[in-house]
Simulated scan of single mutants.
Amino acid sequence: MSYHEPIFAMSLDPAVLLDSQGVVTRVNDTWQPTFGHSADELVGQTLMGLLPRRRPNTSVAGSATSPPTASPGAAYPAPRRKR
């Protein structure tokens, strides 16, 4: 048993162990109630294959695949200084 085993097993947060190729090797018991996938379903799968696909950003002008043109902070104006 490795030194991190008790922490991994007792964590209240979902935890997953991946190999160097991104393939799931273990998940803790919190994973299934949180995400609905059992350990048997996950082990051997790539983590990226389990993530939901991104929905197209339809709020951006142009096509659904157009990248945003404004910087991330552009939606928030700079605060005004009091005089």
Rank of each mutant, 00 (worst) to 15 (best):
E5F: 00
E5Q: 11
E5H: 05
E5T: 07
E5W: 05
P6L: 02
P6W: 01
P6Y: 02
P6R: 01
I7T: 00
I7H: 02
I7E: 01
F8C: 03
F8V: 01
F8P: 01
A9W: 02
A9C: 00
A9T: 01
M10S: 11
M10H: 05
M10G: 06
S11G: 04
S11K: 00
L12R: 09
L12I: 08
L12H: 06
D13H: 04
P14W: 01
P14S: 15
P14I: 11
P14M: 08
A15W: 02
A15T: 14
V16M: 11
L17K: 13
L17S: 09
L18D: 03
D19F: 06
D19R: 11
D19W: 08
D19A: 01
D19L: 00
S20K: 13
Q21E: 14
Q21R: 15
Q21T: 11
G22W: 14
G22Q: 11
G22K: 13
G22S: 06
G22Y: 13
V23A: 04
V24M: 10
T25N: 04
T25K: 13
T25R: 15
V27W: 03
V27N: 02
V27K: 01
V27L: 04
N28R: 01
N28E: 03
N28Q: 02
D29S: 11
D29N: 03
T30G: 02
W31K: 01
Q32E: 14
Q32M: 09
P33D: 03
P33C: 05
P33M: 08
T34W: 04
T34D: 00
T34I: 13
T34V: 14
F35E: 03
F35T: 08
F35Q: 03
F35W: 09
H37E: 08
H37S: 11
H37P: 05
S38I: 05
S38G: 08
S38E: 06
A39H: 04
D40C: 07
D40E: 14
E41C: 06
E41N: 08
E41H: 11
E41T: 12
L42C: 15
L42T: 11
V43L: 05
V43G: 10
V43T: 13
V43K: 05
V43C: 12
G44C: 12
G44S: 12
Q45I: 04
Q45T: 14
Q45L: 07
Q45P: 04
T46C: 06
T46A: 09
L47G: 12
L47Y: 15
L47F: 15
M48S: 13
M48T: 15
M48Q: 14
M48H: 14
G49F: 07
G49P: 12
